[in-house]
């Protein structure tokens, strides 16, 4: 069964900050959803393959080349922070 610690851990893995109140309500919601999906345990799935795609999937290759619409300005205009045209983010290995 899902515990309050599980919820904290999941929020960290999913990179979502949760308030204490939301942790509680999520715990309740997840319990109710997970008890609903429990019914899958009734199904005998021995020897059954996992279905990953609706239509038979095969590898499809194409050259990774810029198309006519990819001049990039519309993309770089979206940056929340930039410096000299480059995307700016916080240091990945910074100490607190």
């Amino acid at each position: 069964m899902i515990t309050p610690e599980d919820i904290k851990k999941l929020a960290e893995l999913a990179r979502i900050h949760l308030t204490e109140k939301e942790e509680k309500s999520l715990e309740k919601d997840l319990k109710s959803i997970l008890s609903y999906v429990e019914k899958l345990k009734e199904v005998d799935v021995s020897g059954v393959h996992e279905m990953t795609h609706a239509v038979a999937a095969k590898n499809v290759f194409r050259g990774d080349e810029p198309g006519e619409e990819d001049d990039g300005t519309l993309l770089t205009e979206q940056f929340p922070e930039e410096e000299r045209g480059y995307l700016k983010v916080k240091g990945v290995f910074e100490r607190d």
């Binding site: 929020a11 990179r15 900050h17 979206q78 929340p80 983010v89 916080k90 240091g91 910074e94």
Partner: peptide, 17 residues
């Protein structure tokens, strides 16, 4: 990171979360 609003926090994990 690349688009949409970005929250202010002191480190990268904080910004994501």
């Amino acid at each position: 990171m690349r688009y949409g609003p970005r929250a202010e926090e002191k480190n990268l994990f904080g910004v994501y979360a």
